[in-house]
Structure formats: structure tokens, C-alpha cells
Design a protein around this nucleic acid. Structure first.
Lengths: 207, 207
DNA sequence: GTTGGAGTTGAACGAGCGTTCGAAGCCCCA
DNA sequence: TGGGGCTTCGAACGCTCGTTCAACTCCAAC
């Protein structure tokens, strides 16, 4: 509480803002709510951020960047297409489960942004979607024709993964590993008829 | 335009309100926007509806009721568990695709309601989720143990189906039949390892 | 031709919104 | 001790919001 750098304070503001946005929704949350939740005055918020919309943009873009960076790390050096997909899913769900508020805001407030803010987030979405579809294409090369249209399959997988903000409780009786394993199986089994074994789904050694 | 009953005018109001809510979001759409879009004065809206929240409730509950009624019709007399699931998915996606605005509002503005309005919609959700999980339980009885936790599977399927409000264009090159077929395959293949054939997925004869 | 209720309206209300700004507090260095 | 730049704040601005209400039009019934 005592001596934080400007960056640390912005970080804290973004974190409590994400919590509030996740709770009440972006539009129903006022700057006064955010000020109260983060322990500064209303005007104080504007010292760290230019507008409410920038606040939302920072939450969305920073977390999306982290997801993308995590995916790159998770896929680096992995050549087996199925394992690449498993790691893609694993990274997505893992980050989602450990940043529920932020990812709920990213999923639900998708079109609250406008102009350049919106464009920059949409660019990330395109990049990320492209990455998944490339993985799917690789899988098709090694496992024969898929049982579903690739684009439909990609968006269906995103649907399974992003929809969790409406029901999943990371502290409940379904752990992230089980969740990730289940979604991996559901998707892989349906997409290329792969009956994924227990062991094949456990996470590999080196990240 | 000339002589409509009160009910028809309310219907028209709900329809244009759904379109506006889907476009801009519930909170960002003002009662003045709705008045303009439906061609009455601001005060005129309040002759048909008690509040903005009731407007949202009516959109959500009426359409959810229609989805549930459609499901009951689709499942009536069908005993094969897999076919029951296919019809469940088919009904959901078909209604979604023909009522994109309304279903987007139902999916996205899930917690904009409060109090009794919220409770009544949530009751419908519980009922509908229960119905799907019962179908899944039947499938497990006839096709052996599932490859995923039943609850996770159910919510994943809802995720695939509801997420389409973020990307699906009913007028695009992916028709509803193909969409439904793809999602059926993805789910069934992953849930019980069923390689669903072309013909088995075509819709049955009598409804 | 008058009555009365259904439908519609313009104008206003109070409240809350995002944002701004001048001033005050704070703390390090001279 | 004093100056100066970060940091914080109370108070206000202009605007839009959801909602209300008295007054109006219209038309069928008497």
C-alpha cells in the first residue's frame, strides 16, 4: 500500500477494474465504482488512465497479449500437431481459469470498444484465430480429412473455451486440468475421431 | 402500419428492440433509440411496457420459451438417444439462426436482469440444461461411458452453440444445416466416439 | 353532438454519468 | 528552509439517462 511505482498502481487499478467490470458489466460500472473499488478518488483514476474506454482497452489488450505469448511459448519446439492443439487448449484454459475476471471482460465486452482500440483488439483476435486454424490444418495433414468444416470447428472450440465465463468456478470440484482434458477430448474426438488416452493428454515435460 | 392490435404492436416493439439491443448492447441502447427505431414517441414506448428492464425480460423469456417448446416438439416420440441429441442441437441452432438478434440478446445480456425477472429466466435455463443432461445420460446408457464429464460436456455444447452469436452469419456460405451437422459431429464424436455418418445426421421424417 | 376510453405525445424531472481543473499534499534534493 | 515536480483531490460542468404526466387526438357508442 505504501510505496508503489506508477506502473504498479496502474496494474492494481486495472486489476480491480477488471473485477468490477466482470461483476457488473462494463456499462453498468461507473468510474465512481472503480474509484471506490481501487481506493482512490474519482479524479485520481484519471491520473493513470485517459478514459474509461482506455481502461477497458488496457484490460483486454494486455491479457490477450499474455494469452498469445503463452501460446507461443507452449507451442515452441512442439511438432506433433495433436500435441500442439492440446497445448493451445491447455494454455487458453489455464490462463482463463487463473484470470477469470479479465477473460470474462475480454469475452463479454467484445464490442464495447470503438475505433482504433477496437481495431487493435480485433487484430489480435484474427492473429489468434489464424494460429488455431493453422494447427487444425496440420492435424488434418497427419490424420486425414476432418469431420467438420475447419472454420466452424475453430469457432466451436473457441465457444467451448470462452463460454466457461458463464459457468466455470476455478475453485469448484472441476479442476483446470480436468476441464482442459475434457475439452481436448471432446474436440479431438469429434474433429478427427481421435480417442485420446489418459496419458496422451497429461501435460508434457518441458514447457 | 394501419390497424394493428395492441399485441401486434408490442410484438413489433419487442422485435425492433431486440435488433437494437443486439446491435449496440442493452446498456448502450437508450429508450430514445428504441422509440426512434420502432417509430413511436419516447413516452409511447411506456404505453406498451412498464420499464426498459421489462422489455429485456420479455425478449429473453418469450424466445427462451419458444426454444424450449420447439425442443419438446422435436423430441416428442423420439426414443433413440443419439437422435434425441441431434434434434436438441438442431432445434437450438435452427431457432438461433432464424432469431439471431433475440438469441444474441439472450446469450449476451444474461445478467442484465435482476430480481424476479432474473430468477424466472434462470429457472428456464436450469430446466433447459437439465433436459440436455438427461439426453446425455441416456446416451451414456446405450453407448457406454462418456469421454468427458457430463456437466462439462453439456456446458461445452452450449458454448459451441451459443457462441455463434459472435461469428455466425445465417446469410453466409455456411448454412444452418451444415452448421448443425458439424456441431453434432464434433460433439458426438468427442463425447462417445461416435463417427456420425452423413445419412444418420440428416433430419428424420416426421417431426 | 356529446361522452369516454384507448392510444399517443411534448416537455419536463431528478439522478447519475464521464470528464475536467485548479488547488492542495507530499517528498526528494539543494 | 524552500522550491518543484509528481500525485491526489473536491467540486463542478454539461450531458444523457429512465421515467412520468397532463394534455391531446381519434373514434366508437349512445
Amino acid at each position: 500500500m505504501a510505496n508503489q511505482t506508477r506502473d504498479q498502481k496502474l496494474e492494481g487499478l486495472l486489476s480491480s477494474a477488471a473485477r468490477e467490470f466482470a461483476l457488473r458489466g462494463y456499462d453498468r460500472t461507473s468510474m465512481r465504482d472503480l474509484a471506490r473499488a481501487s481506493g482512490v478518488s474519482l479524479a485520481g483514476v484519471y491520473y493513470y488512465v485517459q478514459s474509461k474506454e482506455e481502461l477497458l482497452f488496457l484490460i483486454q489488450s494486455r491479457n490477450f497479449e499474455a494469452v498469445i505469448a503463452g501460446m507461443r511459448d507452449a507451442l515452441r519446439g512442439v511438432t506433433n500437431p495433436v500435441e500442439r492443439l492440446q497445448r493451445f487448449i491447455d494454455n487458453h484454459l489455464d490462463y482463463f481459469a487463473t484470470h477469470m475476471a479479465e477473460m470474462k471482460v475480454l469475452s463479454r465486452e467484445a464490442d464495447a470498444l470503438e475505433g482504433e482500440f477496437l481495431q487493435r483488439v480485433n487484430d489480435m483476435k484474427r492473429l489468434y484465430t489464424r494460429a488455431l486454424m493453422d494447427v487444425l490444418a496440420d492435424i488434418e495433414k497427419t490424420h486425414g480429412p476432418a469431420h467438420a468444416n475447419r472454420r466452424v470447428a475453430a469457432y466451436s472450440l473457441f465457444g467451448m473455451m470462452n463460454w466457461i465465463y458463464t459457468w466455470y468456478d476455478p475453485l469448484g470440484d472441476v479442476g483446470v486440468e480436468l476441464l482442459s482434458q475434457n475439452i481436448c477430448r471432446l474436440f479431438l474426438g469429434g474433429y478427427v475421431g481421435l480417442p485420446v488416452s489418459e496419458t496422451a493428454l497429461s501435460r508434457g515435460g518441458a514447457g
